[in-house]
Design a protein around this nucleic acid. Structure first.
Lengths: 226, 226
DNA sequence: CGCCAGGTTGAAGAGAATCAAGTGATGTGG
DNA sequence: CCACATCACTTGATTCTCTTCAACCTGGCG
């Protein structure tokens, strides 16, 4: 194991190193056991940028707490969110050598950072990179299918996806704002909000608070997905 | 080089083997020169299926002539085209071990087929797979951005993309139908058609025939893309 | 010549965006 | 501890884009 550093945020998202260690990879590989690779830890305040578009993509990031979004801002101000990353998920791997999107903390988040080159000395590393790339591709392809659907279908898909990812029964605590959801689904915040209240009126969901959503009728949501 | 077979189509798209050889990979790799890997050739009639969704994804396909589309049909009959593949481009690589979409010949097409496992005996093969996967991911991410745009923006993006890929000056011969274009862009054929005539009326393009498109004002198209 | 698939055009309608106002939660300073 | 400011979300009215439904071209091809 190599030297490790942890980085903590200041108020404005500045980074302060402090010693730490942690595993990069989430899934134990049956053949070899879990892989742990030296890295540094960093904390980011809500909305702090983790990296910017077009910066060299020489690091990988694993969320240890909080939530991260990757997003692209178009010239006319529209914003597109490519993905949300929850604890245990890894982001930052790009098809090229530069980041295609920026990454930001949706809520206060901690990430483990590993240099891509550092890791190349470990066996099975290439396998892991391929696995991550595959997952990104699959995610992107599912996202594509999402964007050709109607608003209720998109929202239903999103709710079921989030529910499956946080797996906490029928109650989902969304870490992200309506704006984030809207930019992920390719809708406006008004449409997202209206669709949610519509679901609530149909008793498909309950909304104890804006970000807490109870799935009361999963079947109805699944029927929507088509 | 291993034994090679070529397969030709019958009227209904059936396959008849015949000896042949050809390179799988398009790009010469500077360090080692072009890689050529044994494979079989096959021809497919217009609209013939090359593989179906959920079939094992154990082969790679390189288009040698014609055009191929990958598509998914949703339960309600809507169809989504994930990508078009032109001569020289490789398709069939999936994030999992099953095809996520089916592949069909847009027009009569010839493809070179290589078994994924066959190829593992060649050096640099893993690199090549990674490169292909990267390209797919990039393609998917650009497609995502497309789908959050307006109809004119999508059509303009599509025209410029096709023009760049066939690089035959300002004249583009589209191999695919309006339906294919529409299903790729997430629009209806009527909207695609209307948008094209609108471009024509603005002298941005000319339409000598339905499938032949002359880009008269690339700048106007680029301005649209935002 | 006439058929037929693919493409275009028109009119009407639906769905989401936009514009605008209101409500509710959160946080801050007096 | 409360008043107020701010931000996030919701709701309503209107507009606009794209879809839908329908009719009509057009170009190959028997």
């Amino acid at each position: 194991m190599l030297t490790e550093l942890t980085i903590q945020r200041s108020k404005a998202g500045h980074l302060f190193p402090r010693p730490m260690r942690g595993p990069l990879l989430a899934e134990p590989r049956t053949s070899t056991g879990p892989i742990e690779i030296a890295g540094s830890r960093a904390s980011f305040a809500r909305n702090a940028q983790i990296y910017r578009e077009k910066e060299p993509a020489d690091r990988l990031y694993k969320v240890t707490s909080g939530t991260v979004r990757t997003c692209k801002v178009l010239v006319d101000g529209r914003r597109h969110i490519g993905a949300f990353y929850l604890p245990g998920e890894t982001f930052g791997l790009e098809p090229g050598d530069r980041h295609m999107a920026s990454a930001e903390a949706v809520i206060d988040a901690e990430v483990l950072i590993v240099r891509r080159c550092t890791a190349s000395t470990f066996p099975f590393w290439d396998d892991e990179l391929t696995r991550l790339m595959s997952r990104e591709l699959q995610r992107a392809q599912e996202h594509l299918l999402l964007l050709i659907k109607t608003a209720p279908e998109r929202v239903a898909t999103f709710l079921l996806e989030m529910s499956a990812r946080v797996r906490s029964g029928d109650e989902v605590e969304l870490p992200m704002s309506r704006r984030d959801v809207a930019d992920y689904l390719g809708l406006t915040i008004e449409t997202v909000s209206r669709t949610l209240t519509q679901f609530e009126n149909q008793s498909v969901i309950a909304l104890p608070t804006a970000k807490r959503i109870v799935l009361r009728n999963r079947l109805a949501l699944k029927r929507l997905i088509a």
